[in-house]
Design a protein around this nucleic acid. Sequence first.
DNA 1: AAGACGGGGCA
DNA 2: TGCCCAGTCTT
Length: 324
Amino acid sequence: MTTPVDLGDVAAHGAAPIRTRRHVPGSSASDLHTALLDWFAAEARDLPWRDPATGAWGVLVSEIMLQQTPVARVEPRWRDWMARWPSPADLAAASPADVLRAWDRLGYPRRALRLREAAAAISRDHGGLVPTGMADLLALPGVGTYTAAAVTAFAYRRRAVVLDTNVRRVLARLVGGRALPPPTQVVAESERARALLPDGDEESARWNAALMELGALVCTARAPSCSACPVRTECAWLLAGRPADAHASNRRTQAWHGTDRQARGRILAMVRQATGPVTPTDLARAWEPGPQYERALAGLLTDGLVAATTAPDGVVLGYALPLT
DNA sequence: AAGACGGGGCA
DNA sequence: TGCCCAGTCTT
């Protein structure tokens, strides 16, 4: 149905994006755009935060939860969260303890505290409405480049360069002809993404979502389903014979067992599940005594994830989630 | 630019 | 076991 765009040059040089958008009267979309947007219209998952009835607050909550956490684990937590705190003001009025318990085991619990702080800032500085500009969004705790762009695109349906791990991988393959993007994001990637972004607001928003969805469902990191890909005839990586990852040796896998992070997780899990303060003796059962335990607990206190209750003489009676 | 920061699921 | 996941913040 469509004529594949010739990406041979891109595949050969592996360099920057080279195609520009076509401006055909009556049709602003290139064949590439049409193919991916049609696929997205047919195959997109029915995620609750994509419901048009979900407002910007719901989108923001979903984006924070989805930072480094897969969709399948986020969805039930998001539903509970939105039922309990349907507006920023509702969350701002909640205690950190309630927020951390509702966060459950989504991981990176500092995100939960930052989301609460963001809700307070939204209530205080923006009349209770999630701000619309990139600068105001970026000023919110826990909102970085990706999340600000995602809220702009998916909540407000405006043009923004949304570059997450999925989009980076899809563009690295489709346009760059590489197996995977570089270990850390480089300027050329955002330029490439911008060059491909449709001009229209609504169309660009759908394009961003479609790229992410393709990366999540088809153009996956481990075992991409190229035979099912709607843009396989235009993929520089596939056309080049799916060459192996060039930076494989530079990628560093993060340790887990026996790390400070695991110790923090164990300690916080014990405090989170307790109904009242945990005595120092009980808490010490969460991890082997020693400098690592002390370091982990101190870090949790510093981060505001755990609070100590003390007697008048300063002796620690117990540890609990912070009530304020 | 590099490191810290959770936790679970799948090959 | 190793790798991956809609990243952000600090140094």
